[in-house]
Design a protein around this nucleic acid. Structure first.
Lengths: 337, 337
DNA sequence: CTGAAAGCGCTTACAG
DNA sequence: CTGAAAGCGCTTACAG
């Protein structure tokens, strides 16, 4: 399998290598006649440029890096959806997809990696309010897009969830059903922008709706969701509705509730953040706030690709979630436990 | 952020670039004195070689490609575990991890990708009995390792599950509990080696244990597992135990059983293939055959890395699964429905 | 509109 | 044990 190079194409088309290069990049005008000869040579030889050489010579490697710290014991369907959607999107654009799983605080690894110049740009996940990776990439002058947001987002490109809308939709619905004491099982990670914004949106939404807000932190696991729910039920037996930031957490919470004889949705309504095709048991179709991970992934990928092409793009996007009502919410029972 | 190059190191150490290169690769003897000067220069300058240049000059890019067709709607915890484990393993070895999600039958994309020379080697998932990707990579002379096996595995390196052991452990256990009619909800993908081998192991195991084998195909989804279970219960009400190839399928099957009043484990025992930290509801701790995805991922990664380093390695490995008994299996009820 | 040449940062014969 | 030089396959000033 001998590689076909730009020199082969140039020879067959009877032009110089630089002409072939420019025909490919479109960076300078080429006469229609020679353009056709070059195209013909490319087709007949089956030429495709070597991205390694392109990159070394100052061009693109057509590779993007996806920075997503993964702890193998704590992965939910949502994370997977993000990864798979982004990978598919990038691959379909004929770019290579590089997954970087270094821990979030290991900025050195990212630095090492970035400086190696293997990728043209980055997509960052798990964004912190004050994220050292952002400073690093800005200083290095490497294009990147955030999925999420920092505290200060000047000059940054991001795709994020509209959490105010998400919470509003949940609270509108629950409030309409008569719920007065609503809990939010939120992620125990104050450094993340998502966590802060979701909590704030929850508190403000509760105030607007005149309901009593309860918040309990938990980690991304079934057991942690269960533990948080257990504590909640003990400390606030008056609670009649729960919102969870993640479906794994929701299942843990549901498990505890059912085990203690708290019936869903009769005694307790529940809504989870997630996406539309979570699986759920027939006896308990779970209502979810679909944050549209495929959509977020696609937009982030497109944003980055457009930046790499130098296209001017509107670069701060908020995706509006959709409340999908199934059967885990119901009219609040007047409770007197 | 000006890049430090090998020329900078050579200049500071007062040697030639080739000497620095050889000191780094160890491909020819370097006197202890100059080696020390070079090392000192590398440290003080913070030099790390540019993998793009290395690759172009005939060396390594320190990148491996992970070929795993992903359909975003059909992903279970096991897939995620494989991806995350492999990514972590590769990243920790200071290699870049490239995820290729092209559909399995899209050999052209893999070809395109391989010929671009971005990666040093591949790890292949979802191996078919007769896999065109294997021929492609063999002809191209690119190192690769399979997670799974083909029909003919001469000259191939792989890491796979010992399915005979897996089925034996399940059937030993179920048979001891008195089960006589055991079903296997297997993956509806006859082209995959895994599927064929698992079915064969199931049939042979049943024969050895003198039990009645039932097999029902289904796809990787909750709904499909539910549908298969529904059909099974209608056609063979005498069934008292079920083995599923995947936990998502198991939850679908369990859901249907419970909805129809078939109690687990009282009326029906169930064991799922999977891994040790699947989450499960407190009311139904699921027994699983842990196929050790982290272990498989780690071994595959190490195998490939060793091949890239030219180390001779024992290259066909079968990982023995572990049956983790929890509370979804019980003594068979004498049934007379 | 097109070409000859330098250069990207390495590796590896070739020579000593 | 070490160096000078060619070459990997491109891109991009420089020149016309």
């Amino acid at each position: 399998m001998k590689r076909v190079t730009i020199a082969d194409v140039a020879a067959q088309a009877g032009v110089s290598k630089s002409t072939v290069s420019h025909a490919l990049s479109g960076k300078r005008p080429i006469s229609i006649a020679t353009r056709e000869r070059i195209q013909h040579a490319i087709d007949s030889l089956g030429y495709s440029p070597n991205p390694v050489a392109q990159r070394l010579a100052g061009g693109r490697s057509k590779t993007i890096g996806y920075v997503f710290p993964l702890y193998t014991n704590h992965i939910a369907g949502l994370e997977m959806k993000f990864i798979a959607s982004t990978a598919n999107e990038i691959n379909q654009a004929d770019y290579a997809f590089m997954l970087l799983t270094h821990p979030a605080d290991d900025v050195d690894s990212l630095h090492q990696f970035a400086v190696r110049g293997l990728v043209d740009g980055f997509i960052l996940m798990q964004i912190r309010l004050d994220d050292p990776r952002v400073d690093l990439l800005q200083q290095a002058g490497i294009p990147f897009v955030l999925v999420g947001r920092c505290a200060d987002n000047r000059d940054l490109s991001y795709v994020d969830v509209n959490l105010v809308s998400a919470m509003d939709q949940c609270l509108d619905h629950l409030s309409d059903l008569g719920h007065q004491h609503i809990a939010y099982l939120h992620q125990d990670a104050p450094e993340l922008g998502f966590t802060q914004r979701a909590q704030q949106a929850f508190f403000e939404g509760c105030e607007q709706h005149g309901v009593d807000p309860l918040v309990y932190p938990c980690r991304l696991s079934f057991d942690s969701g269960a533990a948080a729910m257990a504590t909640l039920l003990e400390q606030h037996p008056e609670v009649t509705a729960v919102i969870t930031w993640n479906n794994t957490v929701a299942w843990g919470a549901i498990d505890v509730a059912e085990t203690r004889g708290v019936h869903i949705p009769g005694d307790l309504s529940i809504i989870s953040f997630g996406h539309s095709n979570f699986t759920y048991p027939a006896r308990l179709p779970l209502s979810v706030v679909d944050i549209h991970p495929e959509e977020m992934a696609a937009q982030a990928a497109q944003l980055l690709l457009q930046k790499l092409d130098g296209e001017p793009v509107e670069s701060q996007r908020l995706i509006k979630p959709t409340l999908i009502l199934r059967q885990s919410t119901a009219v609040s029972a007047v409770k007197s436990r």
